[in-house]
Write a protein that binds this DNA or RNA. Structure first.
Lengths: 333, 333
DNA sequence: CTGAAAGCGCTAACAC
DNA sequence: GTGTTAGCGCTTTCAG
């Protein structure tokens, strides 16, 4: 940073004005090919790099986007981040990471970064907006989660339909006593997946016994605990639809501990298809989300907004795929 | 961004100069407590936020650091990122993500971001420096990997000693036919872990049979392939030391496929202690790295450099812990 | 303690 | 086509 050559240095050496250099660098048509080449050569020779702060100040853009998640430590976000990153860099944008850890103050703080010029737009995956303030006109794309009534564009999957499909798979195998380990209801995503479970059961004419819906928090340990609770019932289930893979890992772990074979005694379906789920034992049947594509699409929508395009609060729904693997089988009876 | 209040607006309303407002906002001692309060109140009222581009241009700092990895999609980096992020934000720094995917052009590009003012410093976890150019005086901290002769500060673990400890664990259980699935030698980290394997074997007076060292690439699939190669030997091993957990998952997968029980027939030790390794079946014995602390420490060292402190190329070595779980047991014989 | 004024390095009118 | 000039919004001398 210290003593870096600036446009003025190039201008002097080239015997032209700073404006011409700026134009040449910007590949403007308003320059002779010859002067342009001279400037370019000089720039390379001096190892010139434009100062981004100066450029940002002048253009009022930062060429940076903010990707905000609840927990950077969650592997689920990885492929999404990768998709966002790839699409962003193709368009010349850098990606800043934001991590809220469910702290309202930090949620607000990241929104403020949009206003102080830190970033031009945001991909929001926390599922919530700061309580105070008017955030609706900001260049924000909601991904993964759903913020009802926000008027913001969304990129997501149909959690209800996907969950329903997963439960229908269990039903089609012959299961009738199916339990659900849900996420942290009443968060929308958890509610949707539970709703899919209920719809599938209802459509098959099956009732959900008392105690067959237990609430977890998406972490491995809570999968174990919920499973324990389910198998202390007098009439335990033969199949589990678990709202995410991590809790499914925990559930399988617990089942093994209490001596139940998966899928021999109990079938288990997860949700998300984390990349380790196929290496899991038994390989986990689960709902695959197109994570990388969610990231790419969300970024593409954001780029559209930043380019001054679509103001409409479109909702893009991407398809899920049920990955049938080794953790599901027909019931014993 | 549009029509945001600026310092000038506050100055006018407060009836002071912009300089005074700037000072008040910076909590300078050169302002009366009273004027300061007036400015602060006004700032809150107008919902003022300083423009970062302007500030960065003037101060010649971006208050941003760059964290560069080979592959953002690798879960291994998660806790490190989390540690970096936490320490960075405490100090008022934002974290930009860089993803090289082993592309030399991108590696150079991220270094250039240091020079164009995009970031003030960098935490480098790719294990390599761009070939051309003089990067040694830049505020860069190498984490996780080792770049010999770079003259840069490092934050890492002792891979040789850790690997050695893992193999000694297998030896102490009674194993003598121990094989090693290595990472992509000759990358330093892979070489070190293999070196630890060799030292432990040598010290125990054990020889390494031909074909007992196979080279993988750190991915699940290569664990499977390497394992297949090992168990097509006429005299296969009774224990495996695998250079990372992902390949260990693949190896266990393959062992199961060919009908070998883990740890009954074959013991397996991994390296990294990914957070799913304890939910794996069998729970994986592995070397735990203090990932979050690596991130925090690397960022702390970088902050020290940015504060104009230590120029010395210190190397900080953090401790590893062997997590003995269910994938290792004494050999059958 | 406060104000006036000078830029940080760049882009974009506006002239020629 | 090219040069001149005026800022972008902020911090920081330098006077007072």
């Amino acid at each position: 940073m210290r003593d870096r050559p600036k446009i003025k240095d190039i201008a002097e050496k080239a015997g032209v004005s700073v404006a011409t250099v700026s134009r040449a660098l910007a590949a403007s048509t308003l320059v002779t090919a010859e002067t342009r080449q001279r400037v370019l050569d000089l720039a390379r020779e001096l190892d010139y790099r434009p100062n981004v702060s100066a450029r940002n100040l002048r253009t009022r853009r930062s060429m940076t986007v903010l990707m905000v998640v609840r927990d950077v430590g969650n592997p689920f976000y990885l492929d999404i981040l990768k998709g966002v990153e790839a699409t962003a860099r193709e368009a010349g944008y850098a990606v800043l990471m934001g991590n809220t850890e469910n702290d309202p103050a930090r949620e607000t703080e990241y929104f403020n970064m949009l206003r102080d010029g830190h970033a031009d737009g945001m991909i929001l995956m926390t599922g919530k907006l700061p309580s105070a303030g008017d955030w609706n006109h900001l260049p924000v794309v909601v991904a993964l989660e759903m913020i009802e009534g926000s008027g913001l564009p969304h990129v997501q999957v149909d959690n209800v339909a996907a969950a329903r499909g997963a439960v229908e798979h269990l039903i089609s195998l012959g299961h009738r006593r199916i339990a659900h380990i849900s996420g942290p209801v009443p968060e929308p995503m958890s509610v949707y997946r539970r709703e899919g479970f209920r719809l599938a059961m209802r459509d098959a004419g099956l009732t959900i016994p008392a105690g067959y819906e237990v609430r977890g928090d998406f972490l491995i340990e809570s999968g174990e605990e919920c499973c324990r609770s389910l198998f202390s019932l007098s009439d335990p289930p033969t199949a589990l639809f678990v709202a995410n893979d991590e809790m499914a890992y925990g559930a399988v772990h617990e089942l093994r501990r209490i001596g139940r074979d998966v899928p021999g005694d109990v079938s288990v379906v997860g949700f998300d298809d984390l990349y380790l789920s196929k290496a899991f034992y038994p390989p986990l049947t689960t709902v695959g989300q197109p994570r990388s594509e969610i990231g790419r699409t969300a970024m593409a929508v954001l780029l559209g907004i930043l380019a001054g395009g679509s103001e409409g609060a479109e909702t893009i729904v991407l398809p899920t795929v049920l990955k049938v693997r080794g953790s599901t089988a027909p019931p014993l009876i």
